[in-house]
Design a protein around this nucleic acid. Sequence first.
RNA 1: GGCCCCAUCGUCUAGCCUGGUCUAGGACACCUCCCUUUCACGGAGGUAACGAGGGUUCGAAUCCCUCUGGGGUCACCA
Length: 580
Amino acid sequence: MRLRIRFRARQGHLNMTIPNPSCPVTRFAPSPSGHLHVGGARTALYSWAFARGRGGQFIIRIEDTDQKRSSDAASVGFLRDLEWLGIRWDQGPTFTAPDGSVVGGGANGSYFQSERLEIYERYFAQLIAAGHAYEAWDTTEELDAMRKESMARKEAFRYRFRGLISPEQRTQFVAEGRTAVVRFRTPQVAITIKDDVLGDATLPAGEVDDFVIRKKDGFPTYHFAVVVDDELMGVTHVLRAQEHFTNTAKHIVLQDALGFRRPTYGHLSIIKNPDDSKMSKRDKDKVLRKAVKERSLSAPPAGTVSTEDWGRWIGDDNVQLDLEAAIRLSEALKVALPEINVDDFRRSGYLPETICNFLALNGWSPGHDIEKFDNTFLCERFSLDRVIKTPAKFDRVKLLAFNTDAINAMPREEFARRCREHAAQFRPEFVARFDEAKFALLMHACHERSKTLDEPFRTNGFLLVDDDALVFADDKNVRKALGIGASSVDGAKSGLDHLRAMRSILAALPEWTQVALESAANAYTAEYAAGKIGSVAQPLRIAVSGTTVSPPIWDTLVLVGCNAALARIDRCVAWASALR
RNA sequence: GGCCCCAUCGUCUAGCCUGGUCUAGGACACCUCCCUUUCACGGAGGUAACGAGGGUUCGAAUCCCUCUGGGGUCACCA
């Protein structure tokens, strides 16, 4: 059995760290396809906090044994998202953080499974020599047929050892062009899984079949690689998604056959969507596929997805569109993409510390009605016995409330600084449009009413449009504020009348500042609007922003600027006059 | 379907292990009122849960059993 794969790196993997039993070693081991989603982020957070709070080590390992689905870009994305959340690894792929510090490295590398093939080979050989594993030559078609047969008998298909083949038979298979996989010869005994979250569970004998440990392409399967690497990297505690719970039996029999130690396991319940479906990294694609199907589209809308990508994507439900393409397609199809990935939440302006806090609370609680805490507190207090066993729904509304609280509690300068960083990445048009002072004013004006770092930009698009291009909303609120369609009571002035009057007053102002604007408006209001500032402010707001919602009006007027404000008022007066 | 796991307000959860202090606490959402130049924030109230049925016990959200409901898993994916 000789591998034809070239090893990319092989440094360091013989230096095995002997863990101090009092210091736990945990790991987060994503497979690099798609993006880090909130479920994975929570697993990473718990694993990190568990090790950190106990003076242990936290490892990142990239499980890229599926050549078809793994990508380097995804690996980098995972690392970036983790680092952004404040989850830093003691060992793992090296990564340069935005602040310039380097995370990762370590003596137990490589931390990419695709670079550890040589190691796995040794253990395959060990297992085969001991009679714990054997070559199996079945073709995919043969296996499918066996599965079908089992299904017809209403039984679960379980592959069993079917006796050693003769050397002649083996030669024959090779001549036919067949390639063998290696299967583990699972002992037919009951297996007890010890789990610090779910408690212990015993699988009856015969539940686990002779599963594949080495694929045709020479790569180990997940089960094999995870067992070998956890042992070699000295992992003491494995926290992972509940979908792996039954798999643990496979890992246990493998560990026993290999003479490895058993880590302590903790399986975390899944995180669900509000509609009870499983929250998955494929949810966005699911939404898009549904929309495509409903519209019976046979080709991608122009400018969204390349024909090649489209074909691949349509042909295989496991294929995910990259984010940019997904966003373009969602806009073309007019459907909203659910926020699933850490990256989605960052784009939407959520704070990493809030995400961590909220994620931690989704499945764990410190007790005593404590809800708001930081990662330091989490590390100090996190324990497996307080992890919830039941699946939880991810409540974006509550997350937003947490984010709002965190933003409101932030010092003004910090809010401005972080918004600017956000804008630099996601809203460059605002950075380009405003000078330092005006940008600061926008931040100040929006701070207390912002729920995310993105909100000052998302809600104030009117600041960017040309005066000629501003669209005035023709809705109930606008009509009411302008007095359109209403008959005058006792000769009182309408909002539109106030707007016309204020136009002249504003045009004559010696300086365009909040103080000057406000005092001029107050003076006018006292005399002509019975002191009701709202009846004057709202028409102005509509004129410069197009709607009845904007930051505080005097700030808004300064942000828009004198000339633009007057031009907009003129346009608004003309527009509203025509409405009557 | 086989196997495994789970079960408190609409949602996230505290309480359960070590039965009484639980006429079940907090948070988000929702409703009412107040504040207010819009939106948002904020303030004061309010509605709202132990899945069902059996036990055990003086006493059960807490312990046991059954049912029901939910989840996970049965790949050469992880």
